[in-house]
Design a protein around this nucleic acid. Structure first.
Lengths: 307, 307
DNA sequence: TTTATCATTCCAGAAAGTGGAATCGTTGCT
DNA sequence: AGCAACGATTCCACTTTCTGGAATGATAAA
């Protein structure tokens, strides 16, 4: 007794995930009849229907749903065997990774990431590409950048992504700012002027949208600065309010700068920071290792901001 | 990118284990050219030679040896997916298992095994077939017995087996027997008469062989009995010595019967008790579960005698 | 050098896989 | 109830892959 054809596991995973013969076929780039026949073979091998009629559609059987995790893990582990070969020589490789991210991310993650990478690949090199104003998709697409880290809205659909951490804006003010003496409300927070950080001069964002949509209020942007460095030293001498993401606030010495923070009095959409890469790098074992390392490091360093 | 044919993992495992194309071919019942071609495909997929020339033979590459554990686990896990289906319904099954074992084994293991089996399969039934004098292979071969537990020397080569526990003989005597007053030596142990337990009237065994071969001594068998029950009640009224395996000694109340034990003063070959089954049952998930349960139970119950 | 053994390649036939067309099964709408 | 739409399955003919036997290549021992 030889056992069933293990390659059927690839079809099994996709059939269960899609719960559809035609979608599974499309995904694995075979015809529907071919996929239907693989399903028939799986039904025999497993003595289970795997997919059962559910009206005009199909749904996975209880058994199939019960084993999906294990199937996914099996396929992932089987495919990672090949990567083992590729990664077996990491210690002798000297790959160069070009990563594009803004200053906040670089400040928070560059050193921990490099340390983690060099543990397994001592001769690797990380180039942090400067964040310029064009969309990140183009350099990813053209191979000038291997990995993007950030929260841009502008990303081509073909680019693959994975969320690294979620962040929220908080207000930063001088430590004896009047707004800190009473609970912060939408009404009192618009009594002061604001600084907005934006490279593109875009002064308004989610804070303004919520104030307008839910409270009929508007805040005044007194100033727009290209990055936060410009203001943290002098903020303590003004009544200005500087909204900053948590990753920055964690990075600066709030107390030593004579500053304090407050949370905005309404839920703001989180800022999803993600890593993005071109599909060309999807199955590259060394690049996959880079991404997995980054994922791990960002979770460790930014633990309470993790996705 | 679809990924390599996962069924190659079956060939990969066997090629690494056997370190030989022809042996692997024989084992999986394909021709050498076919196996050679699978190896060629594996070499391409893994970018590794897998088997390298070692004089006239082959040996596994360092990489191959490094992944063998994972390959074995992958294949095992993949095959156990099917068993999941079969075992998912254990609670509703009512299988009957016919197990052949001698009284000692039944006394030690019957209840713990049944309890363990019924935890997952409440309606299962265990029939302990009487140990009769024919070799166990025939009823296994003909399906009259599902599983054999014992230490027989007579077993057909096709029958599969797994060692369950190792045992050793000890001497059992009345509690104030003179042999206990000084250290036991080969010389003084032959001063007393022995009882031998044997269904086939075979009175001599390893004890005799060692005495003769290493000390030029012989013990006197005063009596041969078909099983140990016959003697334990009356042994305390004699100077006879009754050698018994540890499994029995653990089972009887030595003190309450006015008995004591001693170890023989030379190493004796251990008695390897094993479970054996016909290959027809090799991949049967329910029977595999039975065997695994028995293995676990025997280790728990006979922990210090385990293999 | 010859022999023995194992691994690899060649070859012809068998087996399995493929996609397009046809058919089947189910639901929703009229 | 009949028809249309959609997805799953089966049929069919062709293509591709796999198979084992024969031939060849590689290595060590006598």
């Amino acid at each position: 007794m030889r056992g069933y054809d293990l390659d059927l596991l690839r079809y099994l995973q996709v059939l269960i995930e899609e719960e559809s013969v035609s979608l599974a076929a499309r995904r694995l780039k075979v015809s529907e009849p071919a996929m239907s026949r693989h399903l028939a073979k799986l039904r025999v091998a497993f003595a289970d229907p795997i997919l059962v009629q559910s009206g005009r559609r199909m749904s996975a059987s209880v058994f199939a749903l019960g084993i999906l995790d294990r199937v996914q893990e099996l396929v992932r582990n089987a495919d990672s065997l090949i990567e083992t070969r590729a990664l077996a020589n990491l210690a002798n490789m000297a790959p160069t990774f070009t990563i594009r991210a803004n200053d906040l991310v670089v400040a928070a993650l560059a050193l921990p990431l490099l340390q983690a990478l060099k543990k397994e690949c001592p001769r690797c090199e990380v180039i942090w590409a400067p964040e310029v104003d064009d969309p990140a998709s183009d350099p990813l697409r053209h191979g000038r950048v291997d990995l993007y880290i950030g929260a841009t809205d502008v990303m081509k659909p073909e680019i693959r992504r994975q969320t690294l951490f979620r962040d929220h804006m908080q207000g930063v003010v001088r430590k004896d700012h009047p707004i800190l003496s009473t609970p912060v409300t939408p009404q009192n927070m618009v009594l002061y002027d604001y600084i907005s950080v934006s490279r593109r001069g875009r002064a308004q964002g989610p804070i303004d949208w919520v104030l307008r949509a839910q409270y009929g209020l508007a805040r005044r942007i007194a100033m727009v600065v290209p990055n936060y460095h410009c203001m943290v030293e002098s903020l303590k001498d003004s009544d200005l309010i500087l909204p900053l993401p948590g990753i920055v606030i964690d990075h600066i010495s709030v107390k030593a700068l004579g500053l304090a923070t407050f949370r905005f009095p309404f839920p703001l959409p989180s800022i999803d920071a993600f890593q993005a890469w071109h599909p060309r790098r999807d199955t590259d074992p060394v690049h996959r290792w880079l991404r997995e390392t980054l994922f791990r490091v960002s979770h460790r360093v930014l633990g309470n901001k993790a996705a």
